[in-house]
Simulated scan of single mutants.
Amino acid sequence: MQRTLVLLKPDCVQRRLMGEVISRFEAKGLEIVAMKMIRITPELSRQHYAEHVEKPFYRGLEAFITSAPVLAMAIEGLEVIRVVREMLGATSGLKAAAGTIRGDYSSSRQMNLVHASDGEEAASRELKLYFSEEEFCEFDSVMTPFMRAGDES
Rank of each mutant, 00 (worst) to 15 (best):
A27D: 11
G77H: 12
S117P: 13
L44R: 12
G60F: 11
R82T: 12
A90C: 08
L17P: 06
S67N: 07
G99H: 10
S108N: 15
Y49M: 13
S67E: 07
E126D: 11
G19C: 07
A34M: 03
R16Q: 02
S107Q: 08
A97I: 02
R102T: 10
K28H: 01
Y49P: 13
F131P: 05
K95R: 14
P56S: 14
R82I: 00
F136N: 08
M143F: 15
A74Y: 13
A123P: 00
G99L: 09
S45V: 09
R39G: 03
E54S: 14
I75K: 10
V142I: 08
M37C: 05
S108R: 09
S106A: 15
R46E: 13
S132R: 14
T66E: 09
K28T: 00
G93E: 00
S45L: 03
E134Q: 07
G103F: 11
K28Y: 01
R39V: 04
G89K: 14
G60T: 02
I32Y: 04
S132E: 15
E54C: 09
G19H: 09
E62C: 01
E86R: 13
E51T: 05
Q47I: 06
E43V: 08
V13R: 09
A98F: 09
K55D: 04
Y49L: 02
V70C: 06
A50D: 11
K28F: 00
S92Q: 06
R125N: 02
F139K: 10
R109Q: 13
Y58K: 14
G89F: 03
A90V: 10
M73Y: 06
R24A: 10
F57C: 08
I65F: 12
G103A: 13
Q14D: 10
G29W: 00
M73E: 03
G103P: 02
